[in-house]
Design a protein around this nucleic acid. Structure first.
Lengths: 208, 208
DNA sequence: GTTTGTGAATGAGTTCACAGCA
DNA sequence: TGCTGTGAACTCATTCACAAAC
């Protein structure tokens, strides 16, 4: 099993965590790692680690563990993180600007190649290295750049039209920070992060 | 059943979504809403809506639906969102600054009452209404403000010590944006949002 | 006829437990 | 002995289906 099967979405997130563990301990630990080690670092049981990996093949050796470098390569391949993925970002407000600057994206192999906004006051300004372009440029520039990922950091009221535009521009994945469900054509994958929702979930568990 | 039972974590997130639906359609729709309506708005099946609500009591009337205003009140009570929850934020970098300004928090009943940073360059500056204080003030100010929630927007290397300090200051919930698992004492609830992880999960589903 | 509340059935995901290889 | 890979058991969540209420 080495093609990408249907696996639980939670498993996908865990695989990303395993990859991060391997990337971190690279060169500093020994040549092999066990499922117990990976699990301890990622906060997951060893069983779970082995099960998740087994969806994709047999990467380990009984009695030995996993070859650190090789497993890292396999996971990067599985997660499509063995090449830089190009993203475009829509919305240059405070959240959008912070995302454009976020160093974690580049560190993990994502390049935010363009930022778009509707507001003439923002168009033409710079966020770090990136110039803010008018959202009217979105389609052409996204195609030019070969971006596969769109990031939405606009107000709720604008998010659906932005999502539609991104899909039309050929983006295959969308990360949406507006607090609304968006509809997209088949073949486009959406994840939403609702920052206030996160706090709301925490509030439920507060005492008193 | 009106005390808060143990329910699936996913159900907690859905309840927050239902509350948002009710808040939005308030006054604009009719006096009653059905599980079908709530579900359609929230992207959930009517069955699921009724099951989720039934964990906490019987709020509806067969053949009629739920009283909009009354259900809104009940959900707000269940989610602890019927009073303003005070949060403190640690880390005044670009992400922290964006979070401090994020209008969605105030709109949903959260007040970011203080911002802390270690960097003397940032201490004393203002982010909107809020002055940035030195992280050494964290414990005293958090107690003073009666904050129940801490938000971590510092680099990975600092996140564990910040989490420990927040817990010591009496915070009962932590929203962590650093890409690392943090350990906290019993009684403190943590949620983590790893922005790069979100993109990583999307990358898995990319074609090619 | 409409819509709720819920026990029962189904389904998905995790944990167990052990055979087999190093 | 140490550790992997995996079918089987189990646990948890969602969906179904229907009796009761309006």
């Amino acid at each position: 099993m080495t093609a990408n099967p249907v696996i639980p979405e939670a498993a996908v997130a865990r695989l990303a965590a395993y990859l991060r563990v391997l990337t971190e301990c690279q060169a500093e630990e020994s040549r092999h790692v066990s499922s117990a080690f990976i699990g301890a670092q990622a906060g997951v049981s060893p069983d779970q680690v082995r099960k998740d990996l087994s969806y994709f093949g047999e990467f380990g050796r009984p009695g030995v563990g996993y070859d650190l470098e090789q497993l890292r390569g396999q996971l990067a391949r599985i997660m499509r993180l063995n090449r830089v993925q190009v993203a475009v970002l829509v919305g240059a407000g405070s959240l959008g600007s912070a995302l454009a600057r976020y160093p974690g994206f580049a560190q993990r192999g994502f390049r935010v190649a363009a930022v778009f906004d509707l507001d003439p006051q923002r168009v033409g300004t710079r966020i770090g290295e990136i110039g803010v372009e008018h959202v009217g440029q979105l389609r052409q520039r996204t195609t030019e750049l070969g971006a596969t990922i769109g990031i939405i950091a606009v107000p709720r009221s604008a998010c659906q039209s932005v999502a539609t535009a991104l899909a039309a521009a050929g983006v295959k994945a969308i990360l949406n920070f507006a607090p609304a469900k968006i509809r997209v054509p088949d073949g486009v994958n959406v994840r939403s992060v609702d920052l206030a929702r996160e706090l709301e979930c925490l509030a439920y568990y507060l005492p008193g």
